[in-house]
Amino acid sequence: MESDRDLVLALRGRKPGAFDQVYARHGERIWRFLARLAGAGAEDLFQETWLAAARHAHRLREDTQLLPWLFTVARNKHRNSLRAWVRQSRCGQELRAQNVALRPLPDEEVHAHRQAERTQAALARLSEAHREVLLLCAVEGLQTAEVARALACSEEVVRKRLSRARRELARLAGRDDFPRDEP
């Protein structure tokens, strides 16, 4: 099986079949990332991501890391769609209203099988920056340097943002087993 680096070279050389290999190798992960990041809009974003990837594939730099690059494309598509949606909804009034509507479930509904729903709701209420960094680090298992590249920020920013995101997610999901901050 070819390495990602070999695939980048094949894409640059417009080798037939190279794009299909990239798609087969990383399609599911991009889908998983977008489904958790965007929810209902994931199908459109998934298509847009791969169309953009196909358009730019032959212009990749030789040292491009394929998976972080694909996450960057997916994340940018998501951000662009959010901007467009916020513009349409007149200064984000609907977005704020939606966030207010997503309150934690009442205590009596809290059961073990509901924890996933609470996590999903908590994830939806996180800021975009926190949700991205959590999904890339904690779910996709990318290294800090790879996440920094995908999000166009420093590794230090990734570490700080990740720490805040974990705490925010636990708070929003109502987890009481989370370690407390040191005084």
Partner: peptide, 18 residues
């Protein structure tokens, strides 16, 4: 630790396959 808790929370999320 907090990392393990969050990872577990996120990986338990249901997700439809592609």
């Amino acid at each position: 630790d907090e990392n393990e808790i969050v990872e577990q929370m996120l990986t338990e999320l249901p997700l439809a396959p592609l």
